[in-house]
């Protein structure tokens, strides 16, 4: 009896999660029925486990910004800048020595990771300062800084892609540990850390409160400015991590990589139950949403849909999900 009410409460509270699981299951069954021979192969799921983490991490970064009612349109710029700076570091500033040992090589990659994450942190700090201190609307601030970050990518590369990352860097995007894709492991670590941070720490609670009612948060004595600043710093660092995974997987970094990821990140976080007006969002929701969309995209690719039509489907999906959410909330 007690368990039953617990379950009911869970369903009520996480209505959105249940809805998402249903959508994911429908997509999975549909694609399995339409393309059973290609879709249900182990290889398909393995390749999804390499590709989705970078998008998932960007979507979590987007969700963090949305929790306080903001948005981060510069995530892709930050991701590319992190990858490109690491590329510049590896190829121009600190190329591999002719007889560098494994340890030196590992140190070099570690330095590259620190550099990339540091750039993300710095970029996020800039966003946070502009939004929290200067009080620029998040859309405009991140639109501008996104342009600046992408602009620096252009300045550093001059246009063409940077190639020649060390092998260990590629391991971050392509490697396996005990048969599990390294990007997947990274994604799981990030997801768990952020989920714990949002639900179990005062910082997470603060973000939700600020998003629900910024005025009330100020009057309640929350340090709104500082919390918003931290949230964008975190979002920037996560974006840089996504950039590391992306450049590791493709062994290249370019100023206009992953531009379609921006829309997809917004779509995934909204689909995952994040309220763009703030105050609502879960890591679990975003994680299920990214998997649902990846299944959808890989299924359509197998049916030889062009990438453009997949863009169409994603845009339509975004509108559809928003409409469903609105209609459901209206019913109550």
């Amino acid at each position: 009896m007690n368990k039953l009410t617990d379950f009911r409460r869970f369903v009520n509270r996480d209505n959105n999660i249940v809805q998402l699981l249903v959508i994911t299951a429908i997509i999975f069954l549909l694609m399995s029925a339409l393309e059973p021979h290609k879709f249900l192969r182990y290889y398909n799921f393995e390749s999804i486990s390499f590709i989705f983490p970078e998008l998932g991490i960007v979507a979590i970064a987007m969700m963090l910004a949305m929790l306080t009612g903001g948005i981060d349109l510069s995530v892709i710029g930050i991701a590319n800048l992190a990858g490109i700076l690491a590329g510049v570091f590896f190829t121009r500033l600190y190329p591999a020595g002719p007889d560098a040992g494994a340890a030196a090589e590992l140190m070099r990659v570690a330095a590259g990771v620190v550099l990339a994450l540091g750039v993300g942190l710095l970029a996020g700090t800039l966003n946070g300062l502009l939004i929290a201190k200067v009080k620029i609307t998040p859309i405009l601030a991140t639109l501008g800084t996104g342009q600046i970050f992408t602009g620096f990518c252009m300045v550093l590369t001059g246009g063409p892609a940077i190639v020649g990352f060390p092998a260990w860097w590629g391991f971050i995007g392509n490697g396996k540990i005990l048969g599990v894709a390294v990007p997947l492991i990274l994604f799981l670590v990030v997801a768990v850390l952020i989920a714990v941070m949002l639900t179990k720490t005062p910082f997470g609670l603060n973000l939700f409160l600020i998003g629900t009612n910024p005025r009330a948060a100020v009057f309640a004595g929350l340090r709104t400015e500082r919390m918003v600043l931290y949230s964008y710093m975190l979002s920037g660092t996560l974006a840089a991590l996504a950039g590391i995974v992306l450049s590791g997987r493709t062994n290249a970094a370019k100023s206009d990589y992953g531009t379609s990821y921006l829309l997809q990140a917004v779509l995934i976080s909204v689909l995952g139950g994040t309220n763009p007006a703030g105050g609502k969002g879960t890591v679990l929701g975003v994680s299920i949403a990214v998997i649902a969309l990846m299944l959808l995209a890989s299924g359509f690719q197998m049916m030889r849909f062009s990438n453009h039509l997949i863009d169409f489907i994603w845009g339509g999906f975004l509108l559809l999900v928003m409409v469903i959410n609105v209609l459901r909330n209206r019913g109550r």
């Binding site: 948005i71 779509l267 453009h308 039509l309 339509g316």
Partner: peptide, 30 residues
């Protein structure tokens, strides 16, 4: 979409842009 469903303009227009571009490039030509 914006009026009937009271949806946020940024999200609506992000979605409709993707729909229109996708249809144009996918069905009409590249």
């Amino acid at each position: 979409f914006i009026h009937t469903f009271r949806m946020i303009p940024l999200i609506v227009t992000l979605g409709s842009a993707s729909v229109v571009r996708g249809l144009l490039l996918g069905l009409v030509g590249t």
